[in-house]
Amino acid sequence: MKLWQAKLLNQATRARMAGRRLPEEARANLAVLDGLNGRASALAQRFVVVDLETTGLDHTKDRVVSVGAFRVVEGRIRLGEVFSELANPGRGIPVESIKVHGITPDNIRDARPAWEVFRNFLNYLGRDIVVAHYARFDMFFLNRVMRAQYGMRLQNLVMDTVLMCRAALIEPDPYGQKKGAKRCSLDALAARYGLEVPERHTALGDAMATALILQRLLPELSEAGWKTLGDLVQVAGVQ
């Protein structure tokens, strides 16, 4: 994806939504790409690194149970600007999923539904660029709520640290053999950079791990020639 394509899609969404009565947070989200300069340094951007925990991996039936996020500004993680909240999925949590993330029905009994949590997350996010590891998974759940509540997908730029890894660290793979795929897993990247992930498979723990990995990948991308925001969108952007 290129930045001009993201802006074109945004303009199409704005035209489609024109005249509709939208909540303030949705109107603000329509304008998040305004003023973005593709020639600006990728290292100087503002990011929100997010991770979701869910009731399972089935997009058709599973729901979010936890949202965790950290803000990264000019390469620095702002530990005082954290988003962390449980969400009530409105359905049971399979034992297999509880074994992974440790969230039980008792934990989420009094939690707010996902649409209320995401409304607050949207205000927290603001105009910042979304970053996630295997971003399409997280974005599916975020955008399902966005479409249900506002009739549109999230308009922020979205970057995937897996794609950053493939661009910066993995040799070209013209035949699609995916020999380097395992080297871009969260655990493999944490090991490469000597990072401890004490709360693995929690939304906040995995968001922190991804933020730490982002801090290290951005300079490596710059050294590889991907220096600007436009470069970053091209190499790591997802729709």
Rank of each mutant, 00 (worst) to 15 (best):
R153C: 09
Y175D: 11
G237F: 02
R216N: 07
L30V: 11
A135K: 00
D138G: 07
L30Q: 04
G180S: 06
E199L: 14
C165W: 00
S84D: 15
Q215K: 13
F47Q: 01
H133M: 08
R200V: 09
F140Q: 10
P23L: 12
G237W: 00
K61E: 14
A211H: 09
T60H: 12
A167G: 02
L229M: 10
I77Q: 06
I98V: 13
D62M: 10
Q11W: 14
L218Y: 02
N156H: 04
I108V: 15
A236F: 02
T60S: 14
R112G: 03
L204F: 09
G19H: 12
G126E: 09
R20M: 13
H101S: 04
L43F: 02
V131M: 05
L9F: 13
N37V: 15
E220F: 04
A69H: 05
R63T: 10
L142Y: 07
L186C: 08
R16S: 15
Y124I: 09
L3H: 03
N156T: 03
K7A: 11
C184L: 11
L43M: 13
K182P: 01
V162K: 03
G80H: 12
V197P: 00
L229N: 03
Q5T: 10
D173N: 07
L122P: 00
S97H: 05
Q155L: 10
K178N: 13
G68R: 03
S185Q: 05
L204C: 09
L8A: 14
K61G: 08
R119V: 12
T60K: 13
G92S: 12
Q5Y: 12
